[in-house]
C-alpha cells in the first residue's frame, strides 16, 4: 500500500472549515449537509454518536454518475466530537515530516507535562529540506504528543494537545 502524503490537496475543505460546518450542523440539528466548492461536492453526515463522515466527489458535479468516484474520509475526532475540556491543539502549518528533536541524538523539544510559552519551539516539520521549527503560540502545559517522531503529517493535523495556562 503506497500512501498519498498529500491527499489534503484534493480535499477542498480544511479541518477548520469542516469543524465550522459540523458546529453549524449540531446547532441546527442537521444530520446531513452537502456543499460545493471549487467544482467539488462535499457531503458531511453526522451519526448519533457524534461521528462525522465527509464524502468528497473529485469530479465536477455534471460529470459524476450517482454514487460514483467517491472516497470517504474519517475526520479526526478532535475536530468534531471532542468532549468539552480545556485542551487546545497545536496544528501543523504544512505538509511534511514531524520531528520531535533537532537531531536524532538530541533530547526532544517538549514532552507531556512540559511547560511552554508562545515562543517555545515544540517540534520540526521538514518539507523539502526546509526544517521548520514550530512555535507553541500559546502558554501552557503539554498534555499529549499526538504524532510519533518521523511520521508524515498533513496540513492542519493536530500535533500536540496543550492545556493553556
Amino acid at each position: 500500500m503506497v500512501e498519498n502524503f498529500n491527499s489534503f490537496k484534493f480535499f477542498p475543505l480544511d479541518i477548520k472549515e469542516v469543524k465550522e460546518l459540523v458546529d453549524l450542523m449540531k446547532r441546527s440539528d442537521l444530520t446531513e449537509l452537502e456543499i460545493e466548492k471549487e467544482g467539488m461536492r462535499v457531503k458531511i453526515s453526522r451519526g448519533r454518536a457524534g461521528q462525522v463522515n465527509a464524502t468528497t466527489n473529485f469530479l465536477p458535479p455534471e460529470a459524476l454518475p450517482q454514487g460514483g468516484g467517491q472516497e470517504t474520509k474519517q475526520i479526526p475526532a478532535p475536530a468534531s466530537s471532542a468532549p468539552a475540556d480545556d485542551g487546545v491543539y497545536i496544528k501543523s502549518p504544512m505538509v511534511g515530516t514531524f520531528y520531535r528533536s533537532p537531531s536524532p541524538d538530541s533530547a526532544v523539544y517538549v514532552d507531556a507535562d512540559s511547560k511552554v510559552n508562545e515562543k517555545t519551539v515544540v517540534c520540526i516539520i521538514e518539507a523539502m529540506k526546509v526544517m521548520n521549527e514550530i512555535q507553541a503560540e500559546v502558554k501552557g502545559v503539554i498534555l499529549e504528543v499526538l504524532v510519533e517522531n518521523g511520521q508524515p503529517v498533513e496540513f492542519g493535523q493536530p500535533l500536540f494537545k496543550i492545556k493553556p495556562a
Partner: peptide
C-alpha cells in the same frame, strides 16, 4: 531534489534551510 547540487556526478553544494514559524 530537493537540496543537493552535483557536478560531474559528485556532490559540490549542500543547502539547509531552517525556518521559525507559527501557524
Amino acid at each position: 531534489w530537493p537540496n543537493d547540487i552535483y557536478c560531474n556526478g559528485k556532490k559540490a553544494v549542500g543547502i539547509l534551510t531552517e525556518a521559525r514559524m507559527d501557524a
